[in-house]
Design a protein around this nucleic acid. Sequence first.
DNA 1: ACCGTATTCAGCGCG
DNA 2: TGAATACGGT
Length: 760
Amino acid sequence: MKNIFQDLNKEQRVAVEHTDGPSMVIAGAGSGKTRVLTYKVAHLLNQGVDPFNILALTFTNKAAREMKERIIQLVGTGDARNVWMGTFHSIFARILRIEGHRLGYGSNFSIYDTEDSKRLINNIIKEQNLDKKVYAPNYVLGRISGAKINLMDDKQYNENFEIIQADKMAGKPRIGEIYTIYNKRLQSADAMDFDDLLFNTYILLENFPDVLHKYQHKFHYVLVDEYQDTNHVQYMIIRKLAAANENICVVGDDAQSIYGFRGANIQNILSFQRDYPDTIVFKLEQNYRSTKTIVSAANGIIVNNKEQIFKEIWTNNDAGNKIGLLRAPTDSEEGNMVAGSIFEHMMNNQLPYSAFAILYRTNAQSRAFEEALRRRNIKYRIYGGLSFYKRKEIKDLLAYFRLAINNRDEESLQRVINYPARGIGKTSMENVVIAANAAGVSLWEVVSDPKKYSLQVHGGIISRMGSFTTMIKSFSAQLKSRDAYDLAKHIASSSGILKDLYEDKTPEGVSRYENIEELLNAVKDFTDQSIADQESGEVQEDLKTLDGFMADIALLTDADDKDKEDTNHVSLMTIHAAKGLEFPYVFVVGLEENLFPSMMSLNSREDLEEERRLFYVAVTRAMKQLTLSYADNRYKWGLLSPSEASRFLEEINENFLERPMHSRPKVNTGLKSTGSSGGFTPSFGKRTLKKINKTELSQPGYDTREDDIQTGMEVEHQRFGKGKVVSIEGYGGNRKATVFFQKVGQKQLLLKFARLKVLK
DNA sequence: ACCGTATTCAGCGCG
DNA sequence: TGAATACGGT
C-alpha cells in the first residue's frame, strides 16, 4: 500500500482525510478536484472500507473511467473494480434492472435515447393530428424532460394549474396529453427514456421503503463529482441515499456550472450547507494549471457574477505572457489569424500541434478554423461530431439487438421492420399502430399475431410480417445459448444488414460497412473478456451474452478508445466540451455580442451569469497563453452581418491584455462604424441588458428607418459601396433587401444590421 | 418504393 | 449557408 498523501497539498489532504459526515469540496479551476475525489476513494479503501459500500457518481463515462483507472493505480485492481463508480444514469440503470419489476418493468427494459424519444413524440403528434410546427418534438420533449427532472409525472402535470396556464399561453395546451400518451407508450414498450432512469429510481426509493433501506445501507459512502451540475431529481436521489449515514461528499465548482439549460440547478451546490448543517467545507484555491495572468484575468471575470461561493483562486506559477487579442474583419479572416498565430507560436517555440486548442461557443463556428488550418497543413481534430453510437448503421444493428432482447421495444421495431427493405411499408405500419393503440398492446403483439387484432393489410404483407417475427424470435431464443459475438454476427448477416451495406460501394457505404465491423469487434472484445476472467480464476457464472453487452453499452456515447494513435493535432471544440480539459495554448474565439454571450442568454441575469461562467471555463482551460479573438462581420444564416465586440472583453483588466488601451476593441455605438482609433466609451460597461435586444428595436412602428428603403433605390453600404436595391422582403427585424452592388455583386442584407444609406 | 426538389430552421449537449 | 426533412412526381 502506497502512502497516497505525499501527492497532495495540505488543503487536498485534509479534504481527503475527512471521511465521515457531510462535506463539500469547492474546487477552483485547475486545483486538483479529480485528484481529491480519486484519492478519497483510495483512502477509504486503504482504511478497509468494503468497495461495495462506496458509491461514486460522475456525469460522464469518461470521468468515471479515468477515475477508476487512477484508483487502480493507487490501490490495485481487486478493490477498485468493485466500487460502484459510474454515471448517474448507468448506476441507476443497474439498480433499475434489479428492482424495476416493482414498477412494472422487465429486467431487460430498453433505454430510449433522445433520438428514440423524439421519434416517439413525433409519432404521437402525427397520430393526434397535431401541427408539428406548434408541437415541435424538441420543445415537447423539453417540457416532458423538465417535468420528469422536477419529479412531476404526467398526472401531476395535467393537474398543475400553473403548468396548464403556461402551456395554454404558449399556444400548446395539449402537451400534457402528449406526456400521458408518451409515458403509456414507453410502458407498453418496456422502455425508459434517459429521464426515467432518474425519475423511476427516485420513485423506487420513495415508494418502497425496503428498497430505500437496502441501498441506504449498501452505500455507506456517497461521493458526487461535478455537484454544481446536478439537477433536481439527482439532488433528491442523493439526499435519500445519503440520509441514513450522511457520509456524503460532494465536489464541484459553482463558478463552472454551465449546464443550466438542461436542468442543472446551481442552487444545489449553493445551498448544500443548508441541506446538511454539519457540513464541513473545504476550498481548493491553489491553481496548478495556469499562469498568474490567466488566473487573475479569470478572477476578474467571475467577480462580475452575483451568485457564487466566495473563494480566492491563486497560483504559484509564473506571470506568463499577456492575453492576446485578435480582431478580424470577418469570421473567415478570424480563422486565418488564429491559424497564423498558431503557426507562429509553433515555429517560435518548437511546439507540437497538440499544445493548441481552439474553443468556440457554437459548433457552427468551427468551419472557418478548419479551412484555415487545412490551408496551412496544420493537423487538427474536431471534437463533438456524430459519435459512433449515433450513426445510422450502428443504431440499425443495435435496434436488431434491442428488439431481440425486448420484443416490445417499439422504436427498434419501427426502425428495422423494413430495413433492409422487406415490403412492410409506411401504410402497413400505420395500420399496425392504429390496431395496437386500439387494443392497448405493443406493436410487436400486433405484428406477430396480425389476425388476432384483425389487422387490415394484404395477405402478402401478413406473411412477410410472419417471416420477420420468426426471424426475431429465433434471435431471442438464442440469447442465452450463444455468446454475444457469435449471435451478433449471426444477426448482422441474417437480418440482411451486412449484405445491404456491402453492396453499397460509395465511400460512405464502405465506411458504414467498416463501422459495422467495428461494432462487431467491440462485441468480440466484450465476449473475450469472460475468457480472460476465467483464466484469472474468477468465478464466471455464464458466458457473456448479447443482452449483457447491450446493458453495458446502452449508455455509452463515445468510442474514443479506438483511435489513440495520432494524438498530435490541434483540438477544436465547443467550450462545453472543453470543460475539465487543459491546453498550453488556448484560443477562445468569436467574442462577440449575440454570439458569446449568446443572444438567447440576454433576457435574464441568471442566463447571462451562466454565459459568464462559460467564459470563465474557457479562459481557465489555458495553461501558458490565452488568446481571444472576434470578428467585425460574421456570416449568420447565409448572410454577412456586422457584429460588435463582446461585453466580456471589457471584463478583462487592461493590464492583462497584450494590446494597450488606445486600441481596445472598438465599441460599436451605432453612431458610426469606421476609422476613429479611440473607441473606448465609459458608458460601455454600464450597458443594460435591454439595450442589446436589437430585434425589439426593429419592430415595425418602433423604428421606421429601414422601412424607408424601397425597391429601385440607390444605396450605399459601408463595406460593399454603392448599389441598387433589387427587392425587399420580410417585416420588422427580419426585413431583408437584395442589393446589387457595383463592386461585389448581389448581396442579401438584413436591414436592421446593414445600415444602408439612401442615395437616391 | 424511391428519388430529386422544396422548405424549413438554426444553442451549448451528459446519458 | 447547409443539413434535415417533407412532399410530390415517376
